[in-house]
Design a protein around this nucleic acid. Structure first.
Lengths: 242, 242
DNA sequence: CGGCCGGTTGAATCTCTTCAACGTCCGTGG
DNA sequence: CCACGGACGTTGAAGAGATTCAACCGGCCG
């Protein structure tokens, strides 16, 4: 492993010292002085799995960075049908700039750690620091790319391909250090079968059947219904239809 | 109708004088001097229906504004299955900042008029003018909202609801002056049955059947396979599942 | 212990797809 | 001028894939 000087270390607030959002997240656009200012009004806190972070069409007074865990973004039709429209992993930015209220709801899929800022503070900083706006634009473009990728999955893939695609998506995001490995990966599913169904546009029964199919075919192993071992990522990739 | 002074009229380049993108599009963020500078390197031109505007994973040297017509954005799986992931109407901005190549392909769904700029010119202007970056962020957020809305349609709606949703989407975008009217709307479908199928994640046969169903039920009328008359927008809305 | 939640599995059902035939429009060329 | 072919669209019948409904299992908590 190659060691190098961390250019961000000097004068960094304690709160931010070990924060991933300062490197790969939006806070990476801020200098020490700005970090100090923002850290004064920010709050690091935990939320349990299932906690509602942003309610549908409810005024939002804060933005957050996801520091650990997984947040699911979802939309619902009036009759209760639900669709998860995105998953957020550390160090994603959570919130919808320029809108008083969100059109989607955000819920903790697992226990999560968040760093939460008042909306006004972030927006003031956006005006002062074009770099922050740039980062936000980049994150938004990334999310747009992901959303469009997922539209292909939803519209054109079979149930088997959908499930394989989701496993690969999670494997690649849950622990980014293992990203695009070729070998085996192990992780705890951050989603229930019901969540998975809502993300894939399927029913829980179909999800269950496809998972057991992948298991009996030796592509994955499952322990305790939640822990998944992808025996060979490449083999999983071939089942994604891409 | 209320008349008011157009604050943008002074010193505007001839090319931009009547351009919708100067009001509702990204160019609205630019002052006269910037418009003049940009107009010197921009080119207004037409493309026929079916023309490929941005190829999949092909380097992109330009950005464009859509001035008239409809552009479809699509992605394809390796075996040829296709999904349209977005439609762009005037005055949408076309292009993917910060990426040397696009992950999607853009094709003229109808005859279109574009105003095209060199990538470098826009990016320089983005650095000089935070307002432009802001506009771009807003457009990107709008596209993200639309993409997520469509994910619900793809994942959770029935074929009938999908077709109704698409008709409403087009009715609301094709002529924005008629937006959210309650009465009847008439327009030419900018998409073939095949395009519609690729946007909705269906087959052309299913699309055709659902359209005839809407027709026989009196919700819409169809002339020449392309011209659609929505007899009552509210009745169409009730069939969208939202 | 009993009930509930999350998950799995089986059988019947249904929606959408697939395959095939047919109709219309339109430009081309004999 | 009309015949031909292709692009686009509609319709019908058969088939597949996912859903629905139901039963069942194991773990957890009051």
């Amino acid at each position: 492993m190659h060691l190098r000087k961390d250019v961000h270390t000097d004068g960094t607030p304690a709160l931010c010292a070990s924060c991933e959002a300062r490197h790969r997240g939006v806070c990476g656009a801020l200098d020490s002085a700005q970090l100090v200012a923002l850290s004064k009004v920010s709050r690091k806190h935990k939320a349990d799995s299932g906690a509602e972070l942003i309610g549908d069409s409810e005024p939002v007074e804060t933005y957050s960075n996801v520091l650990s865990g997984v947040v699911k973004l979802s939309k619902m039709l009036s009759d209760g049908r639900q669709q998860i429209v995105g998953l957020q992993f550390a160090p994603d930015f959570l919130g919808r700039p320029f809108r008083p209220e969100s059109a989607i709801s955000a819920e903790a899929a697992t226990d999560v750690t968040l760093c939460t800022f008042p909306k006004a503070a972030v927006e003031r900083m956006m005006r002062e620091s074009p770099g922050l706006e740039r980062r936000l634009l980049e994150q938004t473009l990334k999310e747009l790319d992901e959303a469009r990728d997922w539209m292909v999955t939803l519209g054109r893939k079979t149930a088997a391909e959908k499930v394989a695609s989701l496993l690969l998506l999670i494997a690649r995001n849950i622990d980014p250090t293992l990203a695009s490995q070729t070998g085996s990966v192990t992780f705890d599913l951050p989603l229930t079968r019901s969540d998975i169904a809502d993300f894939l546009g399927l029913t829980i029964e179909t999800v269950s059947r496809q998972l057991t199919k992948l298991r009996t075919e030796g592509v994955i192993s499952i322990e305790n219904n939640r822990r998944v071992i992808v025996n060979d990522q490449r083999r999983l990739e071939t089942r994604c239809g891409n």
